[in-house]
Amino acid sequence: MSSRLTVYIDGIGLIAPGLNNWASGSQTLAGLAPYQSAKTVIPTPELLPAAERRRASDIVKVTLATSLEAISQAGLRNNNLSSVFSFSNGDGVNCHSICEMLASEDREISPTRFHNSVHNAAAGYWSIATKTMATSSVLCAFDGSFGAGLLDALTQVVVEDTPCILMTSDTPYPEPMFSKRPIPDNSGIALLLTPEKSPKSIAKITVSVTDEPAYQFSDAELETLRTAIPSMRGLPLLQSIARKESGHIVLDYLDDLRLAVEVHPC
């Protein structure tokens, strides 16, 4: 019994090295503009109250930016959306600071550092910023975090028959952690998924698990991006949508399990 889950994508958010948002990044992914890697630019999180904005770490800002881009395309602001967050790790800089302090004589870590250290910090800030009281899942599957998040978001939409926003983001660790986990820069993808086709729908996707090999970019720089940053394992899906062509894309998930996605533009 192989299950296939069908949903519509009504909004997309993107932030990555050299890809500042979906609006311009989709042009690059469609091949209309050359891809040039550059340091990730993170917008200021205007939606956060001033106190939270000061405390917010990069993973919060990336997640807010991608989600708001997706939500505004779909026109679903203030809609009490169900949400799925999937991060390959929490905020890298924050984790580094805590571990450094705990290895020192003075272990008095700050309350802000501590509450920013929870894996669901970005989910907490996001719910405060968007005033969303609906359910959220906060997941991790190491390099497979995009696939894990997508699968959970699909089950929310299909089983609960409700829109759901998937947000998957990563931030780098400084040294010495960087040598052990070399994520090069901040990145994130958000997808707003809905059970029914709407005038805002960009694509219809049908997803199933597979053991087919994952799609690899022929462009070397995009392929580096895809393999270096867990959330960017979703980039081939975004490229397929950007090209507005029907297609079959296989995305990485776990070591021996991948996701087959049938993509149809709306």
């Binding site: 669901n120 959220s136 899942s137 959970d152 089950t155 776990l254």
Partner: peptide, 22 residues
Amino acid sequence: PAAVVSSACSSSAKVFSIARRM
């Protein structure tokens, strides 16, 4: 399929919900 749920002190209650949907 596999994933860890890490939403602080609700984590291992929420796993029941994820599994149920799957």
